[in-house]
Computed example of a mutant assay.
Amino acid sequence: MSKIYDAVIVGGGIIGCSIAFQLVKRGLRVLVIEKERMISEASSAAAGMLGAQSEFSSDSPMIPLALKSRAMFPQLADELKELTRIDIGLVQKGLIKLAFTESELCELQQQYQFWKTLDSSVRWLQRTELHELEPNVTAEVSGAMYIPNDGQVRAGDLSLAFAKAASVSGAEIREYTEVVSFVTENDQVRGVVTKSEFIYADNVIVAVGAWSAKLLRETGIELQMHPVKGECLSVITEQPLLQATVFAKNGCYIVPKWGNRLLIGATSIANTFHKHVSVQGIYRLLERAQQIMPQLAEAKWEKTWAGIRPQTGDGLPYIGEHPIYKGLWMATGHYRNGILLSPITGVLVADLITKGKHENMNLSSFQLSRKNGITLIT
């Protein structure tokens, strides 16, 4: 049978939709396949932080990707709004990272020392400066670092905008269709197998997040990756209490959204695909959030939810071609940085497929064949 698609993307989350958008812009015939409804997993559960600097305390191959991707958002926001009329809610009012204990203070000071040599806009805040920026954050902090260029978006709207932009640009989307296997021939991918049909393509891109490892086992590799559940909640306040995002070293963050809404997250519960929200998890988040902002005790409760994030063994995502089958590509394992890295991941994968390389990025650290990246199944 002749080829129908240039590329089939398995996974209708933000990474898959970003790749689809970039591929159709390059003139490829693209199909996105999602086993549930589009944007139904981690993409819609995320807080939307663009923590290109707040996530890293030392040198990492992720940093060039993170900084490049963050820089893409202003232009991307305009492009997506023009195509889809969806406002992704880009806010560029910075992020304040907080320490409460002596050990947290030491770690935060090390992070500040690392970044101040690379970015002069990063500031260490005295208590008076913190109070001037965010008067509703408690004064009982041990230290605070201000990162003015780490912003935020509305994750669900960004994901939906990528999906709609890909669709209006020519991509085909199939929901409630599960890919169960691959069509291969002589170490070359030829398409995918769903529960009802064979779909043929020159390239297949796996972007199903934490579910990628299960799907790829039959191809002879075991990804070093596991699921991590993150629980979140939101509250609404009478008056706006925050301008910047605040992120405590204990793992709790508070992200101000439209309508005096505050998004509070997130727990990290490894090795589970169950998305139920636990009383203990929410209790701990509320306790930590009120330590940051005592006024939250008077906030109006809105809702809770959870998402499943894909965490790799070395903390780096998989971006590249399968080590055995040509034309089979991976874009998964972004963990907490899927929203931030979605623009650059789409460009990188599209460049790899259409050009065979990306000229300005060293992607060796993200290949599946990297040290401790995968295990070959014999």
Rank of each mutant, 00 (worst) to 15 (best):
K3W: 08
I4H: 12
A7D: 07
V10S: 08
G13R: 01
I14G: 03
I14K: 01
I15D: 03
G16I: 05
A20D: 05
A20Q: 08
Q22P: 01
V24I: 14
K25T: 02
K25A: 07
R26W: 01
G27F: 04
I33N: 07
K35G: 10
A42Q: 14
S44A: 15
G48M: 05
Q53H: 13
E55S: 04
F56W: 08
S58P: 00
P64T: 09
L65W: 08
A71H: 10
M72I: 13
M72R: 14
F73M: 10
P74G: 11
P74M: 11
A77Q: 12
L80Q: 11
I86Y: 03
D87N: 14
D87K: 09
G89E: 04
V91C: 12
K97I: 07
W115P: 09
L118S: 13
D119R: 12
D119L: 12
R123I: 02
W124L: 15
L125Q: 06
L125K: 05
T128F: 03
E129M: 12
E129Q: 15
N136H: 15
V137P: 00
E140R: 15
E140N: 15
S142Y: 06
A144L: 11
I147H: 03
P148I: 10
Q152W: 03
D157I: 00
L160P: 00
A163N: 05
A163R: 06
K164G: 00
S167P: 00
S169E: 10
I173P: 00
R174V: 05
R174D: 05
T177H: 03
V180W: 02
N186M: 11
D187A: 13
D187M: 12
Q188R: 15
V189G: 01
R190L: 03
V192T: 02
V193Q: 13
T194E: 09
S196F: 03
I199R: 04
D202H: 11
T219W: 08
I221W: 02
P227N: 10
G230K: 01
V235P: 05
I236W: 09
Q239V: 14
Y253G: 06
V255H: 01
G259P: 04
G259R: 13
R261V: 15
L262H: 06
T267Q: 07
F273C: 08
K275W: 04
V279P: 00
Y283S: 15
L285E: 02
Q290A: 09
Q290T: 14
A299L: 04
K300G: 11
E302I: 13
K303N: 15
K303C: 13
W305Y: 13
P310D: 02
T312W: 02
P317M: 07
P317R: 04
I319D: 00
P323D: 02
Y325T: 06
G327S: 10
G327C: 08
T332G: 10
G338F: 07
I339R: 01
L341S: 06
S342L: 08
V347P: 00
V349F: 07
A350S: 15
I353R: 04
L363I: 07
S364A: 12
S364C: 06
S369V: 01
N372P: 01
L376Y: 13
